[in-house]
Design a protein around this nucleic acid. Structure first.
Lengths: 339, 339
DNA sequence: CTGAAAGCGCTTACAG
DNA sequence: CTGAAAGCGCTTACAG
């Protein structure tokens, strides 16, 4: 195990002071071109790796972003995280990733730790549980920039990047109505999470706009994953339901619904629409139509918004926060794009 | 923006010294129970958040693990990462996540940065490109523990957690042969990546073991994603091939193959086996059988192995490194487990 | 059980 | 263009 080389080691070798070396390495204008080049060459030769921990401590900037999500193993979040990571790298930042597993308590613990690690900013998608507002109050007090993505908490004064779930859901359901279906089931998420509420509202908007009744017995709430979708549809069928059209709150739910329908040979008889965002939707038409969420753009914009606060003129004041709302594509055509 | 409270602020308030406060907060036996309780209570009241950056610098331990993967938005990796993150959290570590996008150069850059950030250890799954061995030499020199997972580089003296891809592939293909298929196509990955090579070897093992010829025109190499699987199968069909059974190197490739077959109404006529690891495989039987990779266990074991080196007696010497090989389940039954 | 000293490896702000 | 001083907020090792 080789001893790590420090600024002072380079300085000693060159007969300079560590400050000059530090400046040369960072291309500070104080140092002459020649000296900079010499210092850099020597640093490389000696295998110098700057100690970013020390740099963070003295500069009070970590060039690290904290990211908190409810889940990773989910096509939506993994795609957003990938985009966040790529954009952060491009801008010279690292990512500290934490998963709340839909627990508000864990979300709080993670944010506390990230604050302790002195991240320059926070990107969070809140858990399904009722949020612990105290921790967000603390984030504000400490003056750490934060941007919510996908799932946000209103009125806290933080920026956000979301999707217009309500409009998207409405559009999907109206399309289904346009196809002649007047009795559409909704396998819904949960009311606690904004997206569950919004998508259900969009579903109801569409029905009302077309003079159709909103029937509670056509709506099954409870979750966002495959298991929930499967169980919900299986139970409906067991109870004698004969759905002709279904709007699923998420792609996993849609997949579960499809699974339950396929089991009894009904997959082709039911018009299924769901949210969806990855290659599965393109190559395996489990749904007849789907809403394509702009995951990469969401990640990219979230980083952009956050860095603007970090590197810019500071966080916007309460009431002036930036909210970006992205569009959702509605896809009814499953043809694989030309390669 | 409230000024952050430091150790010394608590000490001043209590008439103690910052060292005592530091120790009390860390439950050091030097400090009496009463004092510890008082210090903790005061710290909480004052809203103290330890500065982990400062702690890292002085203790030379960051309690942070660097994780480098080729991709996140992929069910396999997102599932492993989730397990890594959870286990790391449980053990008191944070995760710095970086994505190489299958580029050896980016992989190197990321590892350099993580080294600079003084992570306590590294977890890496190498990119598809020929690796830059220099960076691994440097990791060794700096004495930073590293564990490879899924995709490793042999002979470098680092531990690894992998899956016996060759045996798994052989098993899947032998099962297919047992069903009566004697002409099985293999939509393969690439030779550069170990798993591509291993799975292909397993495919060939199975054929040879049953006296079947290995025909180059039955093997299409090139990638691991949906697009590749789709294109490969589409081209085969266009060239007049009439496959009866296909072994796909990965779940995404299997999905692409299924998509191409479905387009021409052949999905039900071809026996398709592929790797697969998530809910999609359970609810949407795109393959007739699949190999279930132990993603969560892989993440868990990798963290375990790494922490043993970090917290234990130091890194094993070259030649004594720990290699964990996990089993792969072969699943031919698509019944959804009882809920 | 408590404390004073030294130091981790940098950067910032100020002199020259 | 170069340098000396001070400090970031903690921990370690050594005294008492």
């Amino acid at each position: 195990m080789v001893k790590k080389v420090r600024l002072v080691d380079i300085a000693d070798r060159l007969g300079l002071t560590k400050v000059s070396v530090s400046k040369a390495l960072r291309d500070h204008s104080d140092i002459s071109e020649d000296t900079r080049a010499l210092v850099k060459k020597t640093a490389a030769e000696m295998g110098y790796t700057p100690n970013l921990v020390a740099r963070s401590l003295s500069s009070n900037r970590s060039h690290t972003l904290g990211v908190v999500v409810p889940k990773i193993a989910h096509t939506f979040f993994s795609s957003v995280i990938e985009a966040v990571q790529e954009e952060a790298t491009r801008r010279g930042y690292g990512i500290l990733l934490a998963v709340s597993s839909e627990s508000a308590a864990l979300e709080r613990t993670h944010i506390e730790r990230l604050l302790s690690m002195r991240v320059d900013g926070l990107l969070v998608s809140v858990s399904r549980e009722a949020p612990d507002l105290g921790i967000y109050e603390r984030v504000r007090q400490q003056g750490v920039p934060l941007v919510f993505f996908d799932r946000q908490i209103d009125g806290l004064g933080f920026g956000s990047v979301t999707v217009d779930d309500r409009a998207a859901a409405r559009r999907a359901v109206e399309h289904t109505i346009g196809l002649g279906y007047d009795d559409i089931y909704h396998i819904a998420g949960t009311g606690e999470v904004g997206i569950g509420r919004e998508r259900r509202a969009g579903y109801e908007d569409a029905l009302r706009a077309h003079g159709l009744p909103v029937r509670e017995d056509r709506i099954v709430s409870g979750g966002f994953d495959e298991w929930f979708g499967y169980r919900a549809m299986r139970d409906l069928l067991a109870a004698g339901a004969e759905p002709k059209a279904v709007f699923a709150v998420s792609q996993p739910v849609g997949i579960g619904v499809h699974g339950a329908l396929a089991e009894v040979g009904l997959a082709d008889d039911v018009y299924l629409v769901s949210f969806g965002d990855d290659a599965i939707s393109v190559f395996a038409p489990l749904s007849d139509a789907y809403l394509r969420q702009p995951t990469r753009e969401m990640g990219l914009r979230a980083v952009e918004l956050l860095l603007r606060e970090i590197e810019g003129e500071g966080r916007p004041k309460r009431g002036e926060e930036a909210h970006v709302v992205l569009d959702v594509d509605f896809v009814t055509d499953h043809t694989v794009p030309t390669l």
